[in-house]
């Protein structure tokens, strides 16, 4: 399966090269790609249990995640209005959180859910 751009609610994963100066922040068994104010996080989990870890990097204010093995991007919620689970191929991805323009403050801000 080839890595491809994935959109999951306000979270977007875009396959890319890891910048050379990127700093490794943490290694995790699961990664919350986008936090939700209502507790319904968007989470990367491995498809099968293995010993590999997700590596989270930062560079110039951007966040990258190295996905070591086939994974799933899930929405931690039940009910009828749950974002569909996507399969994520191993690769480095830039995590992008969608923006919107707030006319009341006159500024761009990240979408929060």
């Amino acid at each position: 399966m080839k890595p491809q751009i994935v959109r999951h609610g306000e979270a977007i994963l875009k396959p890319c090269e890891l910048p050379k100066e990127a700093i490794l922040k943490e290694e995790l068994d699961r990664v919350v790609v986008a936090h939700s104010e209502t507790g319904h996080h968007h989470v990367l989990v491995k498809d099968k249990i293995d010993l590999s870890k997700y590596k989270v990097y930062t560079h110039n204010g951007d966040t990258y995640v190295e996905v070591p093995s086939l994974s799933k991007l899930i929405h931690e919620k039940t009910g009828s209005d749950v974002h569909k689970t996507h399969t994520i191929a191993p690769s480095v991805y830039k995590i992008i959180i969608k923006n919107e323009f707030d006319y009341f403050s006159g500024a761009i801000r990240r979408v929060r859910d």
């Binding site: 491809q4 751009i5 994935v6 959109r7 999951h8 609610g9 977007i12 875009k14 974002h83 569909k84 996507h86 992008i96 969608k98 923006n99 919107e100 979408v111």
Partner: peptide, 17 residues
């Protein structure tokens, strides 16, 4: 634009939910 993507990238995107 709001997704931080080029239009061509957005149009190629098939995994969207």
């Amino acid at each position: 634009l709001l997704c931080g993507l080029h239009y061509s990238e957005y149009m190629e995107m098939t995994l969207e939910s």
